[in-house]
């Protein structure tokens, strides 16, 4: 692969890595359940771009787009279910603070 293409790939990869670090940081440090989900979303954003990037660099954009679309559909369903669970926890605790979750034991 040409060095130009490699550089293109690397610059995009660095940006993706930074977005994902931000998402992971959010997931690890927050006590708010919704913010944890937002962190997960950021991670998924990075992932989507990575797949599209891999497709673009190799010229397989058809497959990469098909993968990204499937990924987006699954992401939405997952988020709906996760939000449903968060709302349930809120109804019990009147809070979405993870510190109120009692069973943090392994």
């Amino acid at each position: 692969m040409s060095s130009e293409l490699a550089q293109f790939f690397w610059v995009f990869s660095i940006a993706i890595a930074l977005v994902m670090i931000a998402g992971f940081y959010c997931l690890l440090l927050t006590y708010n359940l919704i913010r944890a989900l937002i962190g997960l979303e950021l991670l998924t954003k990075g992932m989507t771009l990575f797949i599209i990037l891999a497709g673009y660099v190799t010229g397989h954009t058809g497959l990469a787009q098909a993968m990204a679309i499937t990924l987006i559909v699954i992401e939405v369903v997952l988020m709906v279910v996760a939000v449903g669970v968060v709302l349930g926890i809120f109804r019990h605790n009147r809070s979405i603070d993870a510190r109120l979750i009692r069973n943090i034991k392994g």
């Binding site: 979303e41 989507t48 771009l49 497709g55 673009y56 990204a68 679309i69």
Partner: peptide, 19 residues
């Protein structure tokens, strides 16, 4: 927008509308 730039318009539309 980045996905548009990377020659993936259909996935970009999905990202924009759904996500």
């Amino acid at each position: 927008i980045l996905m548009f730039q990377l020659a993936s318009p259909l996935a970009a539309v999905f990202e924009l509308s759904v996500c």
